[in-house]
């Protein structure tokens, strides 16, 4: 059972320096051949400053900083029973190599729901707002995490 008293909790920030190689690695793992993610010159030719982060890049700071497991642990959720229900991003500007992004995770909502089959689930909504080294908003990520019981 997720700890319902944790709604509103804000966690210590994720701080992540964005590397060109990590952007390329994610594009390669997805199998996305779009040259804007792989080649700086190609990106510049299409109006970018450098290779931009792909749309799902914010998974990288979240997972590599071990933040998601730490939050799941703090919420007293059984990691073995976790499903990823939804993921949503709002983009305010591009994320480029050399940017240092700081994300502040916050628990937005926790509720219990019953599935069609009658089993109970806890639904946890987590939001992370990311700023860059200039203090500008770059993106917002929202994740729905489901704990099966």
């Amino acid at each position: 059972m997720a700890d319902l008293s944790k709604v509103g909790t804000e966690y210590s920030p994720i701080i992540w320096e964005v590397e060109r190689g990590k952007i390329r690695e994610l594009a390669k793992a997805i199998g996305d051949p779009n040259p804007i993610y792989l080649d700086k010159e190609a990106a510049i030719a299409e109006g970018y400053k450098d290779t931009p982060a792909p749309p799902t890049f914010l998974v990288v700071p979240m997972m590599w900083c071990d933040k998601m497991p730490a939050i799941i642990n703090d919420l007293k959720i059984n990691f073995m029973m976790v499903l990823h229900g939804e993921e949503e991003y709002e983009y305010y500007q591009q994320i480029y190599p050399g940017d240092i992004i700081t994300g502040t995770p916050r628990v937005i909502n926790i509720e219990e729901k019953e599935s069609k089959s009658g089993s109970k689930m806890d639904m946890v909504t987590l939001e992370v707002r990311y700023k860059n080294q200039m203090g500008e908003d770059v993106a917002k990520a929202r994740s729905l995490i489901i704990e099966r019981k």
């Binding site: 996305d32 931009p52 229900g85 993921e87």
Partner: peptide
Amino acid sequence: GQAITGWVPKKYLKKFGVR
């Protein structure tokens, strides 16, 4: 994301959410 930004340039993407 690959399908979307292969069609709509990445710089124009504002929101993207999935279930």
